[in-house]
Design a protein around this nucleic acid. Structure first.
Length: 636
DNA sequence: GAGTGATCAGGTCA
DNA sequence: CTGACCTGATCACT
């Protein structure tokens, strides 16, 4: 890819009111950065192929990719940030040790107008009223920062005390920097937030203006009606703490707040604040946004929140709890005509209990047990009984010739590799970063991630083996109306979650009649995913706009896994990440897919197929049917 | 182990 | 400025 291009479409780049941008902080420079430092395998100098594959250098590499990859040397203590840190332009804390502060400032001024991308403040008008793009942008930046803070906390874990709340820290930082939207409270829909959107932290809903209380379940605002101030509810979060009735997806019995004392006995609830606002909303027939919270099926200690659209309050009453104290109850009814959201979750619950209740089910498990959890095959749109024949295999098949001849070496950690332990050679290979958070979420995209393998003595519960542990989310292969078979998840998927590898046969190069090929040499649209630098002092991650290196071709035509069903989208919700690990004294490379953002259940999983550089005939490109607003029209 | 309760340091907004 | 509040991570305990 052209790592230096600034014209790519990054979330949040298009519709900013530039005149109102207060503080635009460009991350990327206009000029490609050529690192002089050439240490640090595997992409140290120029453009080598992936470590074990010494394929002849393809034509595409030289002619179409003049930008060398940046290297990722481990930053030495006292190392003066040089050329390679130009991306950190907004890194005020580092300016003092920059040998060329003047030039830096000049560059900043020059690139201000061209920026307006992932990094930078949100325009004032968009802080008040957002749209889909800003909402996505804010959420991506929140999670990037949260993951980074989480990674830093994991390192400090040995130090006692200090409860880990990266979500609060990240939210606090973004709030103070003005990285938020829909600050104006409103009754009814919030621009840019869609019914069915999912959230994993209360702060995410604060930042996009869906529910601006970080803890409280009822959010309300004072509305002037006939010159009188009246509190009206704007949104509620039902998360189970008060024993709400949530069985029917069209109704909800919600309890008022208060009355729960930690030490003393439960007290009567009072008709004040949120309770009063709900009462007034009932009288006025005012609509209330409802967010339903429940346990995350994948990470049972965490919670997921679904925005389930607008409800009206039908009735309210006072109920005696077991303790004898009285509690307010509100019956909310879903406004008809809205797309299903929570109802889908309820259906999935049923399918999980009894697979035969899934309408259109062809096979309960297309993997025939090759994966730890089943992948069902479903067709709800026509009569086709399944995709063309292929052999299901969960991993890549490596031909002999590709196997590494050099001896592999793993780490020598005894139990599980500990973040921050620089004696662990696997961590050192990752520039000192542990690639995943404690619950297995990818922190940052990198040119290559090194996982522990069987050459490492650490135990199988080592957290640095995420891509080797098989499927964790419940997937379904399904027939689409226009785009053949596709893949989606029954479980909600949070950003950075490992989805699957691209399994298949490793081949020399692609043949043009193979629709099931993964080809790393294509042109891929760049995008930002990592934590932007400048938000936290210790953020040393380079921009993730690195060029995609090295030829890797995997054909899933005859042998493959679920990944072969993933369709292309110009606005994808997953991305691929090269991962290397060692096994039986040999190194293996795999392509792993991770969630780019939070993905609600039953949403089609897609990635960017890229555009082949070897086609001279543009007619061979395929017409794109992704339907996104960012659609480039074709792919392949 | 998985599920639950207790505990505690944290945020924002009114 | 204080305090209420349907947090989220962790640990002890079934």
């Amino acid at each position: 890819m052209d790592g230096g291009s600034c014209s790519n479409s990054v979330p949040g780049s298009a519709n900013f009111d530039k005149s109102r941008v207060l503080d635009v902080k460009p991350l990327r420079t206009l000029v490609p950065v050529f690192p002089s430092n050439t240490q640090g395998p595997p992409f140290a100098s120029g453009f080598p192929p992936f470590y074990p594959f010494n394929l002849p250098q393809g034509v595409n590499q030289q002619t179409h990719n003049p930008t060398p990859l940046r290297s990722f040397p481990v930053r030495q203590p006292n190392e003066v940030p040089g050329e390679q840190h130009e991306d950190d332009d907004n890194y005020e804390d580092e300016v003092f040790d920059d040998p060329k502060p003047l030039r830096k400032r000049a560059r900043k001024a020059r690139t201000t107008v061209a920026s307006g991308d992932f990094v930078g403040a949100i325009g004032l008008s968009q802080r008040e009223d957002g749209d889909r793009e800003v909402v996505t942008n804010v959420l991506m930046r929140f999670d990037g920062l949260r993951r980074k803070l989480s990674q830093l906390e994991d390192v400090k874990e040995s130090m006692k005390g200090g409860i880990k709340r990266p979500d609060l820290k990240a939210g606090n930082i973004l709030m103070s920097k003005g990285v938020r939207t829909n600050m104006k409270k409103r009754i009814g829909a919030v621009p840019g937030v869609e019914i069915g959107d999912i959230f994993f932290f209360r702060f995410e809903m604060c930042l996009v203006g869906l529910h601006s209380q970080s803890m409280a379940g009822i959010d309300y605002m004072i509305v002037k009606i006939n010159l009188e101030d009246e509190p009206l509810a704007v949104s509620i979060v039902s998360s189970g703490g008060y024993g709400d009735e949530t069985e029917d997806s069209n109704f909800l019995i919600y309890s008022g707040h208060g009355g729960i004392n930690k030490k003393e006995q439960a007290a009567d609830q009072k008709l004040e604040r949120g309770n009063l606002a709900l009462e007034r909303s009932l009288h006025r027939g005012s609509e209330v946004r409802v967010i339903r919270g429940m346990k995350d099926a994948v990470n049972t200690s965490a919670k997921v929140y679904v925005y389930d659209g607008l409800y009206t309050i039908q009735e309210s009453w006072l109920e005696k709890a077991k303790s004898g104290s009285s509690t307010f109850k509100y019956k909310l009814v879903r406004v008809p005509g809205q797309p299903n959201a929570f109802a889908i979750w309820k259906s999935i619950e049923k399918w999980k209990e009894m697979i035969s209740s899934r309408v259109g089910l062809i096979l309960p498990d297309i993997t025939s047990g090759a994966e730890k959890i089943p992948v069902s095959l479903v067709n709800e749109v026509d009569e086709e009984k399944g995709p063309a024949c292929f052999k299901y295999f969960a991993a890549v098949q490596y031909p002999k010739s590709f196997k590494l001849t050099q001896p592999a070496y793993g780490c020598n950690c005894q139990n599980a590799c500990q973040p921050g332990n620089l004696n662990c050679s696997c961590i050192r290979k990752n520039e000192g970063d542990f690639p995943y958070t404690a619950n297995g979420i990818l922190v940052s995209r990198k040119p290559l991630i090194h996982e522990c393998g069987s050459a490492c003595p650490c135990l199988a519960n080592c957290k640095n083996r995420v891509s080797q542990s098989g499927l964790k989310i419940r997937l379904e292969v399904f027939k689409t109306k226009e785009r053949g078979w596709s893949l989606r998840s029954w479980d909600p998927v949070r950003a950075g979650t490992f989805i699957c590898q691209y399994a298949g046969e490793l081949i020399d190069k692609t043949s043009e009649d193979d629709d099931y090929v993964f080809d790393s040499t294509r042109d891929y649209e760049s995008f930002s995913w990592n934590c932007e630098s400048g938000l936290i002092d210790s953020s040393t991650d380079a921009s993730d706009n690195y060029a995609i290196p090295s030829p890797v071709f995997i054909s899933a035509k005859n042998i493959g896994n679920v990944a072969r069903f993933m369709n292309h989208s110009c606005d994808p919700n997953t991305f691929w990440q090269p991962i290397m690990y060692e096994h039986s004294n040999e190194s293996f490379l795999c392509i792993a897919f991770f969630a780019l953002r939070h993905i609600p259940p039953m949403t089609e999983l897609t990635y960017d197929y890229g555009i082949s550089r070897s086609y001279t005939d543009p007619c061979k490109k395929k017409k794109c049917l992704c339907g996104s607003s960012k659609c480039r029209g074709h792919f392949g």
